[in-house]
Write a protein that binds this DNA or RNA. Structure first.
Length: 654
DNA sequence: GTGTACGTAAACAATC
DNA sequence: GGATTGTTTACGTACA
């Protein structure tokens, strides 16, 4: 009955201004009459019990409605429900019915939905209670004398406020009675607090409902404990009146509040920046009203929306799984690095936290001063960690060991870039990591650009393609685009190793290997003895940067020979290849690891090896990458190692 | 202390 | 006219 009154309120047109005054009188008088008559006439079932049951039925009906809507079933016996384009969020419908609270319902359901819900509920309840004289009588009272006055409410908000005031008064009075009788604690209830503090209507509804449930339960408990012993009429009447009004008010509040999405203007999770955030939609909506209309029209409950919602759920699920895994990995890494337990960062923050374009200084954030910096030699693991980027544990830490006292400014990663980390193997082994994690790759822009170009089939890329490669390969480069794109352009222009070639489809960038090798700073020349000592004395995992540089610069040709590098020791090979940010240095390992990097045969990468004394002139049509000239090597290669040499990276022949 | 490499920011012009 | 591309300069930092 109260449901009906509320639903009738919804169906009314807002033209009748009489509804304002009639509402308060109606609620007060009708509810009072209801409570009184109920308490006087019902001998077996307490009105409180009945109303409690009614409320539960209402909630159950709402839940059932949601489920039916979600499953595409029309509500039986409700033409209006069938006619109205009811849209129920699938996620809502997928929830366990027990999880749906009235607050959630009134927040999630759109006005048509709630209207249909209430009507369905009304029909259901009428069926269930039509043989109850009290309810029938009350319903008759309600429908005959007041329903017409509700049809047109001119000012819902004003009526609602009056209703609230009245409700507050009744509530306070009722609670005082209950407190005097020891039925409820003396501290103010949440509902009263919300009333007094003027909290939101939604919170009020929820709290009121909760409180009403509690009070009703208290009555029921008391009723059960006393085994039918009479309660005082005062208590009974007040409680029943309160409960009746509460239910009617609740439904009224829900009805009134639902259309007022203005309260949530701009805060709808699917609406932002003037457009619909529904996956794949991005429809422009000027305001919330238009958005709601769009939402109901375009994203109603159908197969498509359901599928999209399920997809989104799976996305969220996957992200949560990924988040858990990454978090676990981070913890393991920090544990391994003896990082303080308090250091882990919140989930929702990227690993690197710098806000501005200073990319590299984020490493210092990732490794605060509390972190014991590993020594630059023995303790630094060189082998890329399978669980994460090797650069995090080695190069960055190494760099940080020199720069951790500087709070700002980019951290140079010369060692990591050129000596410690082979970019190809690093990217190969941590391809997915860099794709998903907001971690800056520990390579210079130049090396990354070079890698991108050499990775391309034609070894030439347009600027935009380079951009795309960055964003495709690294999650880090999906933001601060202006900064790193500027850096890319800057590097392309600055370094002579990048050659701009006019192509039929525009300008493309290629790599001049000669120039690229030239730009590398002179490093210590290796010697067989040094290499031998390093291999035998230090072990693969303990090569420091200098040794790695030496290896890279001078002696990798020896180390790279098949007897020393066998497939099971691919990681060791990486270690031996340290000192390269060179794509070609470890492409074999890249491919053998089955990484996501494009498969480039060693021949592709190393074919320039054959051209040892080629002039450095850069032809217009030639690919500068094929130019490798003037490279001297301190270790003369035996003639029979030429085949081996062909498999070597270009840098290894320096 | 100096030179080099690197990253970042910015201005500017040419081109799309 | 705005966006993109390309060049150049300047500055600060890290490192050898």
């Amino acid at each position: 009955m109260m449901v009906e009154s509320a639903s009738e309120t919804i169906r009314t047109t807002p033209s009748n201004q009489n509804g304002v005054s009639s509402l308060s009188s109606q609620s007060d008088g009708g509810g009072g009459r209801e409570g009184g008559s109920n308490g006087d006439t019902n001998g077996e079932i307490s009105p409180v019990d009945l109303l409690h049951l009614q409320q539960q039925q209402a909630l159950q009906a709402a839940r059932q409605f949601l489920l039916q809507q979600a499953s595409g079933l029309n509500s039986p016996g409700s033409n209006e429900v069938k006619q109205s384009p009811v849209q129920v969020p699938v996620s809502m419908a997928m929830m366990s019915p027990q999880m749906i609270t009235p607050q959630q319902m009134q927040q999630i359901l759109s006005p048509p939905q709630l209207q249909a819900l209430l009507q369905q509920q009304q029909a259901l309840m009428l069926q269930q209670v039509k043989h109850t004289p009290i309810l029938t009588h009350t319903r008759a009272l309600w429908t005959q004398s007041q329903a017409d006055k509700f049809r047109c409410i001119g000012s819902k908000q004003l009526a609602f406020q009056q209703q609230l005031i009245q409700m507050q008064q009744l509530q306070q009075q009722h609670i005082l009675n209950l407190q005097r009788q020891g039925l409820v604690p003396l501290q103010p209830t949440a509902a009263m607090q919300s009333l007094q503090q003027g909290t939101s209507t939604h919170a009020f509804i929820h709290r009121t409902l909760t409180m009403q449930q509690s009070v009703t339960q208290t009555h029921l408990d008391k009723h059960a404990c006393t085994h039918g012993q009479n309660c005082t009429h005062t208590q009974t009447h007040a409680s029943e009146k309160y409960v009746c009004i509460t239910i009617s008010l609740l439904l009224f509040c829900v009805c009134l509040c639902l259309p007022s999405h203005e309260e949530h203007a701009g805060s709808h999770p699917l609406y932002g920046h003037g457009e619909c955030k529904w996956p794949g939609c991005e429809a422009l909506c000027e305001d919330m009203g238009q958005f709601i209309k769009h939402l109901n029209n375009e994203h109603a409950l159908d197969d498509r929306s359901t599928a999209q919602c399920r997809v989104q759920m799976q996305v969220v699920q996957q992200l949560e799984i990924q988040l858990a895994k990454e978090s676990e990995r981070l913890q393991a890494m920090m544990t391994h690095l003896h990082m303080r337990p308090s250091e882990p960062k919140p989930y929702n923050q990227p690993l690197n936290l710098a806000s501005s374009g200073s990319l590299l200084k984020r490493d210092s954030d990732a490794y605060p001063e509390g972190l014991p910096h590993p020594p630059t030699s023995a303790a630094t693991p060189i082998t890329p960690l399978r669980q994460g980027p090797s650069v995090i544990s080695s190069s960055s830490l190494h760099t940080h060991s020199h720069s951790h006292t500087h709070a700002v400014g980019p951290i140079r990663r010369r060692n990591s870039d050129k000596y410690c980390t082979p970019i190809a193997s690093e990217l190969a082994q941590n391809c997915e990591f860099y794709k998903n994690a907001d971690v800056r790759p520990p390579f210079t822009y130049a090396s990354l650009i070079r890698h991108a170009i050499l990775e391309s089939p034609d070894r030439q890329l347009t600027l935009n393609e380079i951009y795309n490669w960055f964003t495709r390969k690294f999650a880090y480069f999906r933001r601060n685009t202006a900064t790193w794109k500027n850096a890319v352009r800057h590097n392309l222009s600055l370094h002579k190793c990048f050659v701009r070639v006019e192509n039929v489809k525009g300008a493309v960038w290629t790599v001049d290997e000669v120039e690229y090798q030239k730009r590398r700073p002179p490093k210590m020349t290796g010697s067989p003895t040094l290499v031998k000592n390093m291999i035998s004395g230090l072990g693969f995992g303990s090569l420091n940067a200098s040794y790695q540089a030496a290896l890279a610069e001078s002696s990798l040709s020896l180390l790279n020979s098949p007897p020393l590098v066998t497939p099971p020791s691919a990681a060791s090979l990486n270690m031996l290849h340290v000192g390269h940010d060179d794509v070609s240095s470890t492409v074999e390992q890249v491919n053998s690891n089955g990484s996501c990097s494009p498969t480039l045969s060693p021949q592709q990468y190393s074919h320039p090896v054959h051209v040892k004394e080629e002039p450095t002139e850069v032809e217009e049509d030639s690919r500068p990458v094929s130019l490798l000239a003037g490279v001297t090597h301190s270790l003369p290669l035996p003639s029979d190692e030429r085949d081996l040499e062909e498999d070597l990276p270009t840098e290894e022949l320096e």
